[in-house]
């Protein structure tokens, strides 16, 4: 039944090619990918001046998410690269580990390198996503998961995947802990600039959860 790989049976019993339309990324999905990309970018590494400048140029609007983005831009405009970098270290790196451990495995089991990471690795293999060699961190870091979601939506790892596949990935690897993590980030003692990152992340994860429920 080879035809199933590229087409589906139309109502008249003929074959219908998967149209180009179906493979295009809808505007709302482009925005979702950008939101994930933004969170990934802000969480993946120690911030530098360029990142803060770009962040300060974000313009929000009157919505909750829009206000949170405005607040993020405002915070980026006032913090120095040095202070933001110190904050990042205190939150995520630290000598004896940062204040927060941004790993799915840690949030779900209390330890890194546990079963949730193994599950993620299996799903990554299925989806054709691999970790670059120079990245030594476990893949279930929040920044990595956001980057994977962005790529799955936008098609950075091949063709964009359908909503069901996105939802399965979200439900398995983000839904169980993403909201809690961003809440923790908002409330972390060391967080100043990253408080506003936490708010944007929390609001966006809430939006995603609701939207996936609607689509189900």
């Amino acid at each position: 039944m080879k035809w199933q790989q590229w087409g589906r049976r139309g109502p008249t019993g003929g074959y219908t090619l998967v149209t180009k339309q179906a493979l295009q990324v809808a505007s709302e999905d482009r925005l979702r990918a950008d939101a994930y990309g933004l969170l990934a970018r802000l969480l993946c590494d120690v911030p530098d001046g360029a990142l803060l400048t770009l962040t300060s140029e974000i313009t929000g609007d009157d919505s909750s998410l829009g206000s949170a983005l405005s607040a993020l831009a405002g915070a980026a405009a006032t913090v120095t690269a040095e202070a933001a970098s110190e904050e990042y270290h205190a939150l995520f790196i630290g000598v004896a580990g940062g204040e927060l451990k941004p790993y799915c495995s840690f949030y779900l089991t209390g330890f890194v390198y546990e079963k949730p990471l193994a599950k993620l690795r299996l799903d990554m293999e299925r989806l054709g996503i691999a970790r670059r060699e120079q990245v030594k961190e476990p893949e279930d870091h929040m920044a990595s998961l956001c980057e994977m979601m962005a790529g799955l939506i936008s098609g950075a790892f091949g063709a964009p995947v359908d909503l069901e596949t996105q939802q399965r990935f979200f439900d398995r690897h983000l839904a169980p802990w993403a909201r809690l993590f961003f809440e923790d980030l908002e409330g972390a003692d060391s967080a100043r600039f990253y408080k506003s990152v936490g708010t944007v992340g929390r609001l966006f994860m809430e939006i995603e959860s609701t939207a996936f429920e609607m689509a189900a």
């Binding site: 950008d34 970018r41 974000i58 829009g66 983005l69």
Partner: peptide, 28 residues
Amino acid sequence: FFKMVGLGAVAGAATLANAPREAVAEVA
């Protein structure tokens, strides 16, 4: 729903979201 919750505001962050970076994941 996405319109209602103001997802459009993210458009202002597109430059940053797509800024060059050390990508963590890559195509297998």
